[in-house]
Amino acid sequence: MLTAFLFALTLALSEPPAATPPSIPAAVFIEAMPKDAKSASWVKKNTKQGDTVVFEAKIGGRAEPFVKNRASFMVADRALKSCDEIEGDTCGKPWDYCCESAESKKANMLMVQIVDASGKLLKCDANGVHGLAPLAVIVVEGVVASVDDKGNCTVDAKKIWVKPAAKKS
């Protein structure tokens, strides 16, 4: 009787197990760079929803390229020069591509997102995960989630290769 009471009390007082916060699966990040990567602008021009794509891009395109608390970020075509690649530019946020026109941004930037098995955007930050950071060069293998003729394009990333940052001498 006492044992049963103590057991019931323990159950009542014990906290329910905390739900594991969502995170980007480690399997998304790969060591070997996928081959035959296209450019971000090529993806925008030549694909349709559901196409599998491999493309190279640089993280950036606005002052805050990463969406807070969501596994989603903006990337820019490598043909565009980020502010750090422009000699003499002292831009505080060189990944915002502030020197590019709105038209150029529309044509050369797209969103990359990481979704769960049900296709829902993961509710976690991508910034800082496995080397993902503003101005990081990445190669993404994924599926075009949406694309239209207004300049919008979103790719569901299945695999991401992050170019190792150059070591400072």
Partner: peptide, 8 residues
Amino acid sequence: AFTSSRLD
């Protein structure tokens, strides 16, 4: 996430 994905 919506506003970020809608460049237009």
